[in-house]
């Protein structure tokens, strides 16, 4: 019953967004019914398509977890994009750079190196916030652009295969690949495991309690003897770590190499997913699958109903709009929620 109640707002937000999307499709001269049935068919009908949806959901789960974890600590990480990218790039480099290792060592090593790269990239805004008071919303966005440039440079100057005209790393060794069992990608299972792990960390450990305390009220937390600076830096690093895992899985389990542009919009989707899940790590899984299902079947929808695939971006933005609009929340929960985090409270100063 409690689960149903807390799922009410996201479900209403999704329904409203789909209705508004239907209106847009109608206005652009296509049939919303055809478009939506193509969306459903393209993502859930048949094991193969379902597998593709899960594959697409994997980086979204990790991106959503990254944003959600930072949210719990009172931080708004818009840098998922850059952290994901670094994870993917370093995992790709480790995937082809180490040779002769057995799978049981090589694959986890590449995965963890990618995650460490994401964590390092995520820790930078954490350090800047904790020591210099620079707001993470701006620094993480700026680091996204820096990351894209850095990755391009590394791919052209350091890790390019001789003779390859494209900007990308060489193909990874077979021993670094994350396999797919039947239609279920192992990467998806890893992401689900991380979702449960994050829930455990936040709810059952002292560190998780510290993170949540700092998120709810930093001054009370530091009065209680928690080092807010340490928590801010660690929260951002863990957030980056989660995004980095998402990038690593994409390289090792889906693409087989790092290619720029694979992550277009993934960082922003993470925000939508984290808010749709109301920052609950377990709820991130169905939220990510929902968004992934739209991405997975957008081309089928274009083929069958003649609707531009970007409509899914609009629907996602509408979902975010409705889920973040507090009035909807208040309609269904008469009073304000007890656990609310304000991101503007520490704007421009620390």
């Amino acid at each position: 019953m409690k689960i149903l109640r807390s799922a009410l707002v996201p479900i209403i937000a999704v329904v409203l967004a789909l209705l508004a999307g239907a209106l847009l499709i109608q206005l652009s001269g296509s049939s919303p019914r055809e478009a939506y049935s193509a969306l459903f068919e393209g993502s859930f009908v048949g094991w193969e398509r379902f597998g593709t949806t899960l594959e697409k959901a994997t980086p979204l789960i990790m991106g959503g977890l990254a944003v959600a974890f930072a949210f719990k600590g009172g931080l708004f990480n818009i840098g998922g994009q850059g952290q994901l990218l670094f994870g993917a790039l370093i995992a790709g480099a480790a995937g082809y750079g180490f040779t002769g290792l057995p799978w049981i060592i090589h694959m986890p090593l590449a995965l963890l190196l990618g995650a460490a790269a994401g964590a390092a990239w995520g820790a930078i805004p954490g350090v800047l916030k904790a020591t210099r008071g620079a707001h993470e919303v701006i620094t993480t966005i700026m680091l996204n652009f820096v990351a894209a440039n850095m990755a391009e440079w590394l791919c052209t100057k350091v890790w390019r295969e001789p003779g390859d005209i494209l900007v990308r790393t060489p193909i990874i060794e077979g021993s670094a690949e994350i396999p797919t069992f039947g239609n279920i990608p192992l990467g998806f299972l890893i992401a689900v495991a991380f979702a449960f792990g994050m829930w455990y960390l936040l709810q059952k450990t002292t560190f998780g309690f510290e993170v949540r305390s700092v998120g709810l009220n930093p001054s009370a937390a530091s009065y209680a003897g928690i080092s807010t600076k340490r928590i801010v830096i660690l929260t951002m690093a863990i957030s980056g770590f989660l995004a980095g895992i998402g990038g690593s899985i994409e390289t090792l389990g889906v693409l087989g190499r790092y290619e720029p542009g694979f992550n277009a919009g993934l960082g922003f989707d993470g925000i939508t997913i984290a808010l749709l899940a109301r920052t609950n790590p377990i709820a991130v899984i169905p939220s990510a699958v929902l968004i992934a299902s739209m991405d997975a079947s957008a081309s089928l929808m274009q083929f069958k109903a003649g609707v531009a695939p970007e409509i899914t971006d609009v629907i996602e933005a509408l979902i975010l709009l409705f889920v973040a609009t507090p009035i909807i929340v208040r309609w269904f929960f008469k009073s304000r929620q007890g656990e609310e985090i304000s991101f503007g409270a520490n704007w421009g100063s620390s």
């Binding site: 939508t272 970007e310 409509i311 933005a317």
Partner: peptide, 9 residues
């Protein structure tokens, strides 16, 4: 996010 999605569409 809304502006990016809508303008692309």
């Amino acid at each position: 996010i809304f502006a990016l999605g809508l303008t692309s569409f």
